[in-house]
Design a protein around this nucleic acid. Sequence first.
DNA 1: CGTGAATGTAATCACTGATTACACAATTGA
DNA 2: TCAATTGTGTAATCAGTGATTACATTCACG
Lengths: 241, 241
Amino acid sequence: MSKFAKPPSRSASKLPARKRAARPSVVPRAAKGRTATSPKTYHHGDLRRVLIAAALELAEEGGADAVSVREAARRAGVSPGAPFRHFPSRNDLMSAVAEEAQRRFRVSIAAAIAGTSADDPLARFRAFGMAYMRWAMTNPAHFEVISSGKYFSHDQSEALREDNDELIAMTEQLLMDALAQGQLRSSDLRVIKIAGRALVYGFARMKIDGHFPRWGVADAEADQMAEAIITLFVDGIARPV
Amino acid sequence: MSKFAKPPSRSASKLPARKRAARPSVVPRAAKGRTATSPKTYHHGDLRRVLIAAALELAEEGGADAVSVREAARRAGVSPGAPFRHFPSRNDLMSAVAEEAQRRFRVSIAAAIAGTSADDPLARFRAFGMAYMRWAMTNPAHFEVISSGKYFSHDQSEALREDNDELIAMTEQLLMDALAQGQLRSSDLRVIKIAGRALVYGFARMKIDGHFPRWGVADAEADQMAEAIITLFVDGIARPV
DNA sequence: CGTGAATGTAATCACTGATTACACAATTGA
DNA sequence: TCAATTGTGTAATCAGTGATTACATTCACG
Protein backbone atom coordinates (compact mmCIF):
# COMPACT_ATOMS: atom_id res chain seq x y z
CA MET A 1 0.00 0.00 0.00
CA SER A 2 1.02 3.52 0.64
CA LYS A 3 3.64 2.30 3.02
CA PHE A 4 5.87 1.54 0.09
CA ALA A 5 5.64 4.96 -1.39
CA LYS A 6 8.05 6.59 0.98
CA PRO A 7 11.44 4.93 0.75
CA PRO A 8 13.68 7.87 1.50
CA SER A 9 12.70 8.27 5.11
CA ARG A 10 11.74 6.22 8.08
CA SER A 11 15.30 4.90 8.33
CA ALA A 12 16.09 7.69 10.74
CA SER A 13 13.04 6.67 12.69
CA LYS A 14 10.67 9.26 14.07
CA LEU A 15 10.01 8.76 17.71
CA PRO A 16 12.94 8.61 20.12
CA ALA A 17 13.07 4.89 19.59
CA ARG A 18 14.26 4.51 23.14
CA LYS A 19 17.86 3.63 22.69
CA ARG A 20 18.48 0.00 22.74
CA ALA A 21 22.27 -0.02 22.47
CA ALA A 22 23.72 -1.14 25.77
CA ARG A 23 21.26 -3.91 26.18
CA PRO A 24 22.80 -7.13 27.47
CA SER A 25 23.10 -5.61 30.91
CA VAL A 26 20.32 -5.10 33.41
CA VAL A 27 17.40 -2.79 32.80
CA PRO A 28 16.62 0.41 34.72
CA ARG A 29 13.68 -1.14 36.53
CA ALA A 30 12.94 2.22 38.13
CA ALA A 31 9.22 2.36 38.71
CA LYS A 32 8.16 -1.02 39.84
CA GLY A 33 4.53 -0.17 40.42
CA ARG A 34 2.65 -1.47 37.41
CA THR A 35 -0.36 0.80 37.49
CA ALA A 36 -0.80 0.39 33.77
CA THR A 37 1.22 3.49 33.06
CA SER A 38 4.78 2.63 34.02
CA PRO A 39 7.22 2.01 31.17
CA LYS A 40 10.95 1.49 31.22
CA THR A 41 10.95 -2.09 32.34
CA TYR A 42 11.91 -4.98 30.13
CA HIS A 43 8.33 -6.02 30.15
CA HIS A 44 6.22 -3.27 28.75
CA GLY A 45 3.36 -4.00 31.08
CA ASP A 46 0.56 -2.73 28.91
CA LEU A 47 1.62 -3.53 25.42
CA ARG A 48 -1.70 -4.85 24.20
CA ARG A 49 -3.59 -1.69 24.96
CA VAL A 50 -0.83 0.54 23.66
CA LEU A 51 -0.66 -1.39 20.42
CA ILE A 52 -4.37 -0.98 19.86
CA ALA A 53 -4.10 2.72 20.58
CA ALA A 54 -1.18 3.04 18.19
CA ALA A 55 -3.10 1.17 15.51
CA LEU A 56 -6.09 3.43 15.96
CA GLU A 57 -3.78 6.38 15.64
CA LEU A 58 -2.28 5.01 12.44
CA ALA A 59 -5.73 4.43 11.03
CA GLU A 60 -6.63 8.01 11.78
CA GLU A 61 -3.53 9.29 10.10
CA GLY A 62 -3.52 7.30 6.89
CA GLY A 63 -6.59 5.15 6.72
CA ALA A 64 -7.07 1.58 7.78
CA ASP A 65 -4.65 0.22 5.21
CA ALA A 66 -1.89 2.33 6.64
CA VAL A 67 -1.94 0.34 9.85
CA SER A 68 1.13 -1.84 10.12
CA VAL A 69 2.11 -4.07 12.98
CA ARG A 70 5.70 -2.93 12.80
CA GLU A 71 4.87 0.74 12.95
CA ALA A 72 2.57 0.12 15.89
CA ALA A 73 5.39 -1.73 17.61
CA ARG A 74 7.75 1.08 16.77
CA ARG A 75 5.45 3.62 18.37
CA ALA A 76 5.09 1.45 21.40
CA GLY A 77 8.89 1.41 21.62
CA VAL A 78 9.09 -2.28 21.25
CA SER A 79 10.63 -4.79 18.87
CA PRO A 80 8.81 -5.88 15.71
CA GLY A 81 8.21 -9.36 17.05
CA ALA A 82 6.71 -8.30 20.34
CA PRO A 83 3.14 -7.74 19.13
CA PHE A 84 3.06 -11.35 18.09
CA ARG A 85 2.59 -12.29 21.75
CA HIS A 86 -0.65 -10.39 21.86
CA PHE A 87 -1.84 -10.63 18.27
CA PRO A 88 -0.96 -13.71 16.25
CA SER A 89 -1.56 -11.81 13.05
CA ARG A 90 -2.21 -8.36 11.72
CA ASN A 91 -5.85 -9.26 11.35
CA ASP A 92 -6.07 -10.05 15.02
CA LEU A 93 -4.76 -6.61 15.78
CA MET A 94 -7.26 -5.08 13.40
CA SER A 95 -9.95 -7.10 15.02
CA ALA A 96 -9.07 -5.65 18.38
CA VAL A 97 -9.04 -2.18 16.87
CA ALA A 98 -12.47 -2.87 15.44
CA GLU A 99 -13.76 -3.94 18.83
CA GLU A 100 -12.63 -0.73 20.40
CA ALA A 101 -14.03 1.37 17.57
CA GLN A 102 -17.34 -0.47 17.56
CA ARG A 103 -17.66 0.03 21.29
CA ARG A 104 -17.22 3.77 20.92
CA PHE A 105 -19.64 3.77 18.02
CA ARG A 106 -22.33 2.01 19.98
CA VAL A 107 -21.92 4.33 22.94
CA SER A 108 -22.24 7.35 20.69
CA ILE A 109 -25.39 6.04 19.04
CA ALA A 110 -26.95 5.09 22.34
CA ALA A 111 -26.31 8.56 23.70
CA ALA A 112 -27.97 10.19 20.72
CA ILE A 113 -31.04 8.02 21.02
CA ALA A 114 -31.28 8.58 24.73
CA GLY A 115 -31.63 12.25 24.01
CA THR A 116 -34.91 11.78 22.20
CA SER A 117 -38.42 11.06 23.35
CA ALA A 118 -39.52 7.44 23.52
CA ASP A 119 -43.00 8.58 22.55
CA ASP A 120 -42.04 9.14 18.94
CA PRO A 121 -40.33 6.03 17.53
CA LEU A 122 -39.99 7.52 14.08
CA ALA A 123 -38.23 10.54 15.49
CA ARG A 124 -35.89 8.17 17.30
CA PHE A 125 -35.32 6.34 14.07
CA ARG A 126 -34.33 9.61 12.49
CA ALA A 127 -32.00 10.46 15.33
CA PHE A 128 -30.49 7.03 15.05
CA GLY A 129 -29.75 7.53 11.39
CA MET A 130 -28.29 10.95 11.93
CA ALA A 131 -26.08 9.77 14.77
CA TYR A 132 -24.91 6.93 12.57
CA MET A 133 -23.88 9.18 9.73
CA ARG A 134 -22.38 11.81 11.99
CA TRP A 135 -20.18 9.35 13.79
CA ALA A 136 -19.04 7.79 10.56
CA MET A 137 -18.14 11.15 9.10
CA THR A 138 -16.38 12.23 12.26
CA ASN A 139 -14.42 9.02 12.62
CA PRO A 140 -13.86 7.86 9.08
CA ALA A 141 -10.91 5.60 9.79
CA HIS A 142 -12.62 3.86 12.68
CA PHE A 143 -15.75 3.46 10.68
CA GLU A 144 -13.79 1.97 7.84
CA VAL A 145 -12.15 -0.56 10.08
CA ILE A 146 -15.50 -1.58 11.48
CA SER A 147 -17.35 -1.83 8.25
CA SER A 148 -15.00 -2.77 5.47
CA GLY A 149 -15.04 -6.37 6.55
CA LYS A 150 -11.69 -7.36 5.17
CA TYR A 151 -9.57 -6.94 8.22
CA PHE A 152 -11.24 -9.55 10.32
CA SER A 153 -14.11 -11.96 10.51
CA HIS A 154 -17.15 -11.13 12.55
CA ASP A 155 -17.21 -14.70 13.73
CA GLN A 156 -13.96 -14.14 15.55
CA SER A 157 -15.14 -11.64 18.07
CA GLU A 158 -18.00 -12.17 20.43
CA ALA A 159 -17.98 -8.54 21.53
CA LEU A 160 -18.03 -7.33 17.96
CA ARG A 161 -21.01 -9.44 17.03
CA GLU A 162 -22.87 -8.53 20.20
CA ASP A 163 -22.43 -4.81 19.72
CA ASN A 164 -23.55 -5.12 16.16
CA ASP A 165 -26.54 -7.28 16.91
CA GLU A 166 -27.62 -4.80 19.50
CA LEU A 167 -27.68 -2.01 16.97
CA ILE A 168 -29.69 -4.15 14.58
CA ALA A 169 -32.13 -5.12 17.31
CA MET A 170 -32.48 -1.49 18.22
CA THR A 171 -33.40 -0.64 14.64
CA GLU A 172 -35.99 -3.38 14.56
CA GLN A 173 -37.51 -2.34 17.84
CA LEU A 174 -37.86 1.26 16.75
CA LEU A 175 -39.59 0.22 13.57
CA MET A 176 -41.94 -2.13 15.40
CA ASP A 177 -42.87 0.65 17.78
CA ALA A 178 -43.40 3.05 14.93
CA LEU A 179 -45.64 0.56 13.18
CA ALA A 180 -47.59 -0.07 16.37
CA GLN A 181 -48.23 3.65 16.65
CA GLY A 182 -49.44 3.79 13.08
CA GLN A 183 -46.57 5.93 11.93
CA LEU A 184 -45.64 3.80 8.94
CA ARG A 185 -47.08 3.56 5.49
CA SER A 186 -45.79 0.05 4.85
CA SER A 187 -45.66 -2.86 7.24
CA ASP A 188 -42.73 -4.59 5.61
CA LEU A 189 -40.33 -3.68 8.35
CA ARG A 190 -37.60 -5.87 6.98
CA VAL A 191 -37.38 -3.93 3.76
CA ILE A 192 -37.50 -0.62 5.59
CA LYS A 193 -34.74 -1.80 7.85
CA ILE A 194 -32.42 -2.82 5.02
CA ALA A 195 -33.22 0.25 2.98
CA GLY A 196 -32.55 2.53 5.91
CA ARG A 197 -29.30 0.81 6.64
CA ALA A 198 -28.26 0.98 3.00
CA LEU A 199 -29.06 4.67 2.95
CA VAL A 200 -27.01 5.70 5.95
CA TYR A 201 -24.22 3.27 5.20
CA GLY A 202 -24.08 4.38 1.61
CA PHE A 203 -23.98 8.04 2.55
CA ALA A 204 -21.27 7.47 5.10
CA ARG A 205 -19.19 5.50 2.63
CA MET A 206 -19.69 8.06 -0.10
CA LYS A 207 -18.06 10.53 2.22
CA ILE A 208 -15.29 8.21 3.29
CA ASP A 209 -14.60 6.90 -0.19
CA GLY A 210 -14.31 10.42 -1.48
CA HIS A 211 -17.39 10.50 -3.69
CA PHE A 212 -18.71 13.79 -2.41
CA PRO A 213 -16.75 16.03 -4.77
CA ARG A 214 -17.99 14.15 -7.82
CA TRP A 215 -21.54 14.39 -6.59
CA GLY A 216 -21.30 18.03 -5.77
CA VAL A 217 -21.52 17.77 -2.03
CA ALA A 218 -19.21 20.12 -0.16
CA ASP A 219 -17.78 18.86 3.09
CA ALA A 220 -19.24 21.81 4.92
CA GLU A 221 -22.76 20.89 3.93
CA ALA A 222 -22.40 17.15 4.49
CA ASP A 223 -24.24 17.32 7.76
CA GLN A 224 -27.24 19.17 6.44
CA MET A 225 -27.33 16.89 3.42
CA ALA A 226 -27.45 13.97 5.80
CA GLU A 227 -30.41 15.60 7.51
CA ALA A 228 -32.10 16.15 4.18
CA ILE A 229 -31.80 12.59 2.92
CA ILE A 230 -32.97 11.22 6.24
CA THR A 231 -35.96 13.50 6.08
CA LEU A 232 -36.68 12.41 2.53
CA PHE A 233 -36.48 8.77 3.51
CA VAL A 234 -38.51 9.03 6.68
CA ASP A 235 -41.18 11.10 4.98
CA GLY A 236 -41.26 8.43 2.33
CA ILE A 237 -41.98 5.61 4.73
CA ALA A 238 -44.23 7.59 7.04
CA ARG A 239 -47.99 7.35 6.82
CA PRO A 240 -49.20 10.54 5.18
CA VAL A 241 -51.28 12.74 7.47
CA MET B 1 -2.36 -7.63 3.20
CA SER B 2 -3.49 -11.09 2.53
CA LYS B 3 -0.54 -11.52 0.24
CA PHE B 4 1.64 -12.06 3.24
CA ALA B 5 -0.48 -14.77 4.72
CA LYS B 6 0.63 -17.51 2.40
CA PRO B 7 4.36 -18.00 2.77
CA PRO B 8 4.64 -21.73 2.07
CA SER B 9 3.65 -21.61 -1.57
CA ARG B 10 4.04 -19.39 -4.57
CA SER B 11 7.73 -20.28 -4.66
CA ALA B 12 6.99 -23.12 -7.03
CA SER B 13 5.07 -20.63 -9.09
CA LYS B 14 1.73 -21.55 -10.52
CA LEU B 15 1.55 -20.88 -14.21
CA PRO B 16 4.16 -22.41 -16.50
CA ALA B 17 6.27 -19.35 -15.95
CA ARG B 18 7.62 -19.78 -19.42
CA LYS B 19 11.12 -20.97 -18.82
CA ARG B 20 13.63 -18.26 -18.79
CA ALA B 21 16.79 -20.29 -18.36
CA ALA B 22 18.76 -20.18 -21.58
CA ARG B 23 18.24 -16.51 -22.00
CA PRO B 24 21.37 -14.64 -23.08
CA SER B 25 21.08 -16.14 -26.52
CA VAL B 26 18.64 -15.05 -29.17
CA VAL B 27 14.91 -15.41 -28.76
CA PRO B 28 12.65 -17.69 -30.81
CA ARG B 29 11.07 -14.85 -32.67
CA ALA B 30 8.71 -17.30 -34.34
CA ALA B 31 5.54 -15.41 -35.09
CA LYS B 32 6.57 -12.00 -36.20
CA GLY B 33 3.12 -10.71 -36.99
CA ARG B 34 2.09 -8.59 -34.04
CA THR B 35 -1.66 -8.91 -34.29
CA ALA B 36 -1.95 -8.26 -30.58
CA THR B 37 -1.94 -11.97 -29.83
CA SER B 38 1.58 -13.15 -30.60
CA PRO B 39 3.87 -13.86 -27.67
CA LYS B 40 7.30 -15.40 -27.52
CA THR B 41 9.31 -12.39 -28.58
CA TYR B 42 11.59 -10.43 -26.34
CA HIS B 43 9.17 -7.62 -26.53
CA HIS B 44 5.86 -8.77 -25.32
CA GLY B 45 3.96 -6.62 -27.72
CA ASP B 46 0.80 -6.24 -25.71
CA LEU B 47 1.97 -6.05 -22.16
CA ARG B 48 -0.14 -3.15 -21.10
CA ARG B 49 -3.40 -4.81 -21.99
CA VAL B 50 -2.33 -8.17 -20.59
CA LEU B 51 -1.30 -6.58 -17.31
CA ILE B 52 -4.67 -4.93 -16.94
CA ALA B 53 -6.40 -8.22 -17.68
CA ALA B 54 -4.23 -10.03 -15.17
CA ALA B 55 -4.96 -7.40 -12.55
CA LEU B 56 -8.69 -7.68 -13.18
CA GLU B 57 -8.33 -11.42 -12.78
CA LEU B 58 -6.48 -11.02 -9.51
CA ALA B 59 -9.13 -8.65 -8.25
CA GLU B 60 -11.78 -11.20 -9.09
CA GLU B 61 -9.93 -13.93 -7.27
CA GLY B 62 -8.99 -12.22 -4.05
CA GLY B 63 -10.43 -8.73 -3.97
CA ALA B 64 -8.86 -5.48 -5.01
CA ASP B 65 -6.20 -5.63 -2.33
CA ALA B 66 -4.96 -8.92 -3.68
CA VAL B 67 -3.78 -7.23 -6.83
CA SER B 68 -0.01 -7.04 -6.94
CA VAL B 69 2.13 -5.72 -9.72
CA ARG B 70 4.54 -8.60 -9.39
CA GLU B 71 1.89 -11.26 -9.64
CA ALA B 72 0.41 -9.55 -12.66
CA ALA B 73 3.86 -9.50 -14.23
CA ARG B 74 4.30 -13.15 -13.33
CA ARG B 75 1.08 -14.07 -15.06
CA ALA B 76 2.07 -12.08 -18.07
CA GLY B 77 5.29 -14.07 -18.13
CA VAL B 78 7.43 -11.05 -17.69
CA SER B 79 9.98 -9.74 -15.21
CA PRO B 80 8.89 -7.81 -12.11
CA GLY B 81 10.31 -4.58 -13.42
CA ALA B 82 8.61 -4.71 -16.79
CA PRO B 83 5.25 -3.25 -15.75
CA PHE B 84 7.08 -0.14 -14.68
CA ARG B 85 7.38 0.84 -18.35
CA HIS B 86 3.61 0.96 -18.64
CA PHE B 87 2.57 1.87 -15.12
CA PRO B 88 4.86 4.02 -13.01
CA SER B 89 3.21 2.78 -9.86
CA ARG B 90 0.76 0.24 -8.61
CA ASN B 91 -1.84 2.94 -8.39
CA ASP B 92 -1.44 3.68 -12.06
CA LEU B 93 -2.15 0.07 -12.80
CA MET B 94 -5.18 0.14 -10.54
CA SER B 95 -6.28 3.29 -12.26
CA ALA B 96 -6.18 1.54 -15.61
CA VAL B 97 -8.09 -1.38 -14.15
CA ALA B 98 -10.65 1.07 -12.86
CA GLU B 99 -11.01 2.63 -16.28
CA GLU B 100 -11.72 -0.72 -17.85
CA ALA B 101 -14.16 -1.69 -15.14
CA GLN B 102 -15.93 1.64 -15.24
CA ARG B 103 -16.32 1.35 -19.00
CA ARG B 104 -17.99 -2.03 -18.64
CA PHE B 105 -20.14 -0.68 -15.87
CA ARG B 106 -21.37 2.23 -17.93
CA VAL B 107 -22.14 -0.01 -20.88
CA SER B 108 -24.15 -2.32 -18.69
CA ILE B 109 -26.14 0.51 -17.18
CA ALA B 110 -26.81 2.11 -20.54
CA ALA B 111 -28.09 -1.19 -21.91
CA ALA B 112 -30.49 -1.60 -19.01
CA ILE B 113 -31.88 1.87 -19.43
CA ALA B 114 -32.22 1.48 -23.17
CA GLY B 115 -34.54 -1.41 -22.50
CA THR B 116 -37.12 0.80 -20.84
CA SER B 117 -39.61 3.30 -22.13
CA ALA B 118 -38.55 6.92 -22.31
CA ASP B 119 -42.12 7.90 -21.50
CA ASP B 120 -41.78 6.94 -17.86
CA PRO B 121 -38.73 8.63 -16.35
CA LEU B 122 -39.41 7.26 -12.92
CA ALA B 123 -39.50 3.72 -14.27
CA ARG B 124 -36.18 4.42 -15.95
CA PHE B 125 -34.86 5.74 -12.66
CA ARG B 126 -35.89 2.45 -11.08
CA ALA B 127 -34.25 0.43 -13.82
CA PHE B 128 -31.13 2.52 -13.43
CA GLY B 129 -30.95 1.74 -9.75
CA MET B 130 -31.56 -1.95 -10.26
CA ALA B 131 -28.94 -2.18 -12.98
CA TYR B 132 -26.51 -0.40 -10.70
CA MET B 133 -27.00 -2.81 -7.84
CA ARG B 134 -27.05 -5.87 -10.07
CA TRP B 135 -23.80 -5.01 -11.75
CA ALA B 136 -22.14 -4.27 -8.45
CA MET B 137 -23.27 -7.56 -6.99
CA THR B 138 -22.25 -9.48 -10.08
CA ASN B 139 -18.84 -7.84 -10.32
CA PRO B 140 -17.89 -7.12 -6.73
CA ALA B 141 -14.17 -6.83 -7.28
CA HIS B 142 -14.50 -4.49 -10.22
CA PHE B 143 -17.02 -2.43 -8.35
CA GLU B 144 -14.69 -2.19 -5.39
CA VAL B 145 -11.85 -0.98 -7.54
CA ILE B 146 -14.06 1.67 -9.07
CA SER B 147 -15.61 2.92 -5.91
CA SER B 148 -13.25 2.46 -3.03
CA GLY B 149 -11.31 5.50 -4.03
CA LYS B 150 -8.01 4.55 -2.47
CA TYR B 151 -6.33 3.02 -5.45
CA PHE B 152 -6.26 6.09 -7.61
CA SER B 153 -7.34 9.66 -7.90
CA HIS B 154 -10.24 10.59 -10.09
CA ASP B 155 -8.31 13.59 -11.23
CA GLN B 156 -5.79 11.35 -12.91
CA SER B 157 -8.01 9.85 -15.51
CA GLU B 158 -10.03 11.80 -18.00
CA ALA B 159 -11.95 8.72 -19.13
CA LEU B 160 -12.79 7.79 -15.60
CA ARG B 161 -14.18 11.17 -14.77
CA GLU B 162 -16.09 11.38 -18.03
CA ASP B 163 -17.76 8.02 -17.58
CA ASN B 164 -18.67 8.94 -14.07
CA ASP B 165 -19.97 12.37 -14.93
CA GLU B 166 -22.11 10.84 -17.60
CA LEU B 167 -23.78 8.56 -15.10
CA ILE B 168 -24.43 11.47 -12.78
CA ALA B 169 -25.81 13.58 -15.60
CA MET B 170 -28.04 10.69 -16.58
CA THR B 171 -29.43 10.54 -13.06
CA GLU B 172 -30.11 14.25 -13.05
CA GLN B 173 -31.80 14.16 -16.41
CA LEU B 174 -34.10 11.34 -15.39
CA LEU B 175 -35.13 13.19 -12.28
CA MET B 176 -35.75 16.39 -14.17
CA ASP B 177 -37.94 14.55 -16.63
CA ALA B 178 -39.81 12.86 -13.83
CA LEU B 179 -40.40 16.18 -12.16
CA ALA B 180 -41.56 17.72 -15.43
CA GLN B 181 -44.10 14.97 -15.79
CA GLY B 182 -45.35 15.52 -12.29
CA GLN B 183 -44.16 12.19 -11.02
CA LEU B 184 -42.35 13.53 -7.98
CA ARG B 185 -43.59 14.55 -4.59
CA SER B 186 -40.64 16.80 -3.84
CA SER B 187 -38.85 19.15 -6.18
CA ASP B 188 -35.53 19.02 -4.40
CA LEU B 189 -33.85 16.92 -7.06
CA ARG B 190 -30.44 17.31 -5.52
CA VAL B 191 -31.46 15.61 -2.32
CA ILE B 192 -33.28 12.86 -4.19
CA LYS B 193 -30.22 12.31 -6.32
CA ILE B 194 -27.86 11.97 -3.37
CA ALA B 195 -30.29 9.86 -1.40
CA GLY B 196 -30.83 7.52 -4.33
CA ARG B 197 -27.14 7.21 -4.90
CA ALA B 198 -26.51 6.55 -1.22
CA LEU B 199 -29.20 3.88 -1.24
CA VAL B 200 -27.90 1.85 -4.17
CA TYR B 201 -24.28 2.40 -3.27
CA GLY B 202 -24.92 1.43 0.32
CA PHE B 203 -26.79 -1.70 -0.65
CA ALA B 204 -24.07 -2.73 -3.09
CA ARG B 205 -21.39 -2.16 -0.50
CA MET B 206 -23.31 -4.01 2.17
CA LYS B 207 -23.21 -7.00 -0.11
CA ILE B 208 -19.55 -6.57 -1.02
CA ASP B 209 -18.43 -5.80 2.50
CA GLY B 210 -20.14 -8.91 3.77
CA HIS B 211 -22.86 -7.27 5.83
CA PHE B 212 -25.70 -9.32 4.45
CA PRO B 213 -25.37 -12.24 6.85
CA ARG B 214 -25.53 -9.97 9.88
CA TRP B 215 -28.59 -8.24 8.48
CA GLY B 216 -30.33 -11.46 7.63
CA VAL B 217 -30.20 -11.15 3.89
CA ALA B 218 -29.46 -14.40 2.09
CA ASP B 219 -27.43 -14.15 -1.08
CA ALA B 220 -30.17 -15.87 -3.00
CA GLU B 221 -32.66 -13.17 -2.15
CA ALA B 222 -30.32 -10.24 -2.65
CA ASP B 223 -31.80 -9.42 -6.00
CA GLN B 224 -35.38 -9.33 -4.83
CA MET B 225 -34.35 -7.34 -1.80
CA ALA B 226 -32.77 -4.84 -4.14
CA GLU B 227 -36.06 -4.63 -6.00
CA ALA B 228 -37.90 -4.13 -2.76
CA ILE B 229 -35.79 -1.29 -1.44
CA ILE B 230 -35.88 0.46 -4.80
CA THR B 231 -39.64 0.17 -4.79
CA LEU B 232 -39.80 1.52 -1.28
CA PHE B 233 -37.62 4.44 -2.20
CA VAL B 234 -39.33 5.29 -5.46
CA ASP B 235 -42.76 5.02 -3.91
CA GLY B 236 -41.49 7.34 -1.22
CA ILE B 237 -40.46 10.07 -3.62
CA ALA B 238 -43.33 9.61 -6.06
CA ARG B 239 -46.37 11.85 -5.99
CA PRO B 240 -49.20 9.87 -4.46
CA VAL B 241 -52.02 9.10 -6.87
C1' DC C 1 21.49 -0.53 -42.90
C1' DG C 2 22.14 1.72 -38.80
C1' DT C 3 20.63 4.53 -35.18
C1' DG C 4 17.62 5.98 -31.55
C1' DA C 5 13.44 5.17 -29.08
C1' DA C 6 10.70 1.48 -26.78
C1' DT C 7 10.52 -2.02 -23.92
C1' DG C 8 12.01 -5.97 -21.16
C1' DT C 9 15.74 -7.96 -17.71
C1' DA C 10 18.61 -8.08 -13.67
C1' DA C 11 19.82 -6.47 -9.53
C1' DT C 12 18.93 -3.66 -5.67
C1' DC C 13 16.59 -1.22 -1.78
C1' DA C 14 13.47 -0.44 1.93
C1' DC C 15 9.51 -2.01 3.74
C1' DT C 16 6.07 -5.47 5.42
C1' DG C 17 3.99 -9.76 8.06
C1' DA C 18 5.30 -13.99 9.98
C1' DT C 19 7.99 -17.21 12.77
C1' DT C 20 11.58 -19.15 15.47
C1' DA C 21 15.10 -19.57 19.19
C1' DC C 22 16.55 -17.16 22.92
C1' DA C 23 16.80 -13.81 27.05
C1' DC C 24 14.83 -11.74 30.70
C1' DA C 25 11.24 -10.73 34.16
C1' DA C 26 7.35 -11.71 37.23
C1' DT C 27 4.86 -14.92 39.86
C1' DT C 28 4.26 -18.80 42.43
C1' DG C 29 5.07 -22.35 45.74
C1' DA C 30 7.93 -24.80 48.95
C1' DT D 1 14.24 -16.95 50.57
C1' DC D 2 14.83 -18.92 46.41
C1' DA D 3 14.14 -22.07 42.50
C1' DA D 4 11.00 -23.26 38.83
C1' DT D 5 7.49 -22.04 35.82
C1' DT D 6 5.14 -19.03 33.05
C1' DG D 7 4.74 -14.83 30.55
C1' DT D 8 6.67 -11.36 27.65
C1' DG D 9 10.04 -8.92 24.82
C1' DT D 10 14.44 -9.35 21.60
C1' DA D 11 17.13 -10.87 17.73
C1' DA D 12 17.45 -12.92 13.59
C1' DT D 13 15.54 -14.62 9.57
C1' DC D 14 12.33 -15.60 5.59
C1' DA D 15 9.50 -14.64 1.74
C1' DG D 16 6.73 -11.30 -0.52
C1' DT D 17 6.00 -6.47 -2.23
C1' DG D 18 6.56 -1.74 -4.68
C1' DA D 19 10.02 1.07 -6.46
C1' DT D 20 14.16 2.25 -9.07
C1' DT D 21 18.32 1.96 -11.62
C1' DA D 22 21.74 0.31 -15.09
C1' DC D 23 21.85 -2.63 -18.84
C1' DA D 24 20.23 -5.55 -22.95
C1' DT D 25 17.48 -6.32 -26.76
C1' DT D 26 14.37 -5.28 -30.31
C1' DC D 27 11.69 -2.47 -33.25
C1' DA D 28 10.66 1.31 -36.29
C1' DC D 29 12.03 4.75 -39.03
C1' DG D 30 15.14 7.39 -41.78
